[in-house]
Write a protein that binds this DNA or RNA. Structure first.
Length: 421
RNA sequence: GCCGCCAUCGUCUAGGGGACUAGGACGCCGCCCUCUCACGGCGGAAACCGGGGUUCGAAUCCCCGUGGCGGUACCA
């Protein structure tokens, strides 16, 4: 069993393309077959080395490896031209104003056997004698694809639904060449939330945009696998091994799917929470190119949905905030807040041994003595430390910051409250 | 125009004649937990595109309509 992923290099890899690659990869793994990576680059203008690299880049990030290739379709032009000549010679094709057209019968029908759609029948009279070679002799897409799939021994063609209407043409070329068509599987297309084709204005539309938004490749794989395929009525989380073991083309859905980034966020958050702290830390560091304290990761892990969420949440543990969010300050620093912060400072200073437990003990004791609500004490500390009203747990945050730095930031806030610089 | 594909909660889907007062998940709403934001727990609202058939019985099968999408290029 051999399948192929055959993108045309037009820029970043579209999420739909990522899913097509995933399905091809899953099936090849499951069947113990091979996946060929073939670049459909017969359109020389669009097919720049940079664009090809974008495809490979996305595939590598998704951790989808190919067994052969990347093969260049354009480099096989000699073979394509030979086939065109052969087709003319055998009478299956003829020259027309310099171009070459395939002879399509007026009667009968061409059947595309599709695992997902069943047998799709196309009346031959609805298909014109189509061009397989330009007047300069260069081969056209349908011919190149058919010849390549044949030569490469492809048994399963898994691709987007937008290719279904062109498939009878490829089948005709194969038949004219005396070959059996492969098994086809046309995947439903992916759309944006507005029902239109998924594009940049929907947020992330490409695999690399997903990566840059802080998603984990394993979460992306799990999510997009479920876009048009499902195991049963309840299974949602599957490891890659489980995906491989369970995948089947027969269970691929026929209707188009809308890419829902909110659901991906949720799923990604679940994956992040299940990661060992060291691993999560390593990923945050790899993505940002900066070192971050393990403790900072530990106390914010359950609050993040993506890798980039780390910074607004726990960035204050890496860099001292350069100011206070005005809204946060106004909301929290009301009458008496400065006094409570002052008292909290003493409690933190006295915490011994310095850690979350002793800090909690001291701060809760203060709340008790003052007879105020916990947040009336905790929020001013939070603003002093982070500049905002959002952070991991306050005791853990103070502890992670360290006594000296925590006290310094509180002092700065107190000064700010008194109208100082 | 012609050819083709598709049609279940807002979204992803389960369903392949009786198990359906249509199940799960995201999102949404409410409650609980709570130092903020989250996590988590509990509960709730929310769908079979329309019309004809077939059948004792249709979300499931057939036809028509409607809608969405794709193809129809000397693009891929």
């Amino acid at each position: 069993m051999r399948d192929r992923f055959a993108p045309s290099p037009t820029g970043q890899l579209h999420i739909g393309g990522g899913r097509t690659a995933l399905y091809n990869w899953l099936l090849a793994r499951k069947e113990g077959g091979a996946m060929v990576l073939r670049i459909e680059d017969t359109d020389r203008e669009r097919s720049t080395p940079e664009n090809v690299e974008q495809i490979l880049d996305a595939l590598r990030w998704l951790e989808l490896s190919w067994d052969e290739g990347p093969l260049s379709q354009a480099e096989r032009i000699g073979r394509h031209e030979a086939c065109i000549a052969g087709l003319v010679e055998s009478g299956h094709a003829y020259a027309d104003e310099g171009a070459v057209r395939l002879r399509v019968p007026d009667e009968g029908e061409t059947v595309v056997s599709d695992v997902i759609r069943g047998d799709v029948r196309f009346p031959n009279r609805s298909i014109d004698d189509f061009v397989i070679a330009r007047s300069d002799g260069s081969p056209l897409y349908n011919l190149a694809v058919a010849v390549d799939d044949l030569d490469m021994g492809i048994t399963h063609v898994i691709r987007g639904d937008d290719h279904l209407s062109n498939t009878p043409r490829q089948v005709m070329i194969l038949q004219a060449l005396g070959a059996q068509p492969p098994v086809y599987a046309h995947l439903p297309l992916l759309y944006g939330p507005d029902g239109k084709k998924l594009s940049k204005r929907h947020g992330a539309a490409s695999v690399q945009e997903l990566r840059d938004a802080g998603y984990l490749p394993e979460a992306v794989r799990n999510y997009i696998a479920l876009l048009g395929w499902g195991l049963d009525e309840t299974t949602t989380f599957m490891t890659t091994d489980e995906l491989i073991a369970n995948f089947s083309l027969e269970r691929v859905s026929r209707n188009p799917a809308v890419f829902d980034e909110q659901k991906l966020r949720w799923m990604n958050g679940r994956y992040m929470r299940e990661l060992p702290v060291e691993q999560l830390q390593a990923r945050i560091e790899a993505m940002s190119g900066r070192e971050v304290p393990r403790e900072a990761v530990e106390i914010s892990q359950e609050k993040m949905q993506t890798l980039v969420d780390f910074w607004p949440l726990a960035g204050f543990l890496v860099d001292r905030p350069d100011g206070y969010d005005q809204k946060a300050w106004d909301k929290v620093m009301v009458d008496g807040s400065a006094e409570r912060l002052e008292a909290a400072r003493k409690a933190i200073e006295a915490a011994e041994p310095f850690g979350p437990e002793s800090i909690e003990e001291g701060l809760r004791g203060l709340v008790e003595r003052l007879g105020v609500k916990p947040k009336e004490v905790f929020q001013p500390i939070r603003v002093a430390l982070t500049g905002t009203t959002v952070s991991p747990g306050i005791f853990e945050s103070v502890a992670a910051l360290g006594r000296e730095e925590a006290l310094a930031r509180i002092d700065a806030a107190l000064q700010h409250a008194r109208g100082g610089a």
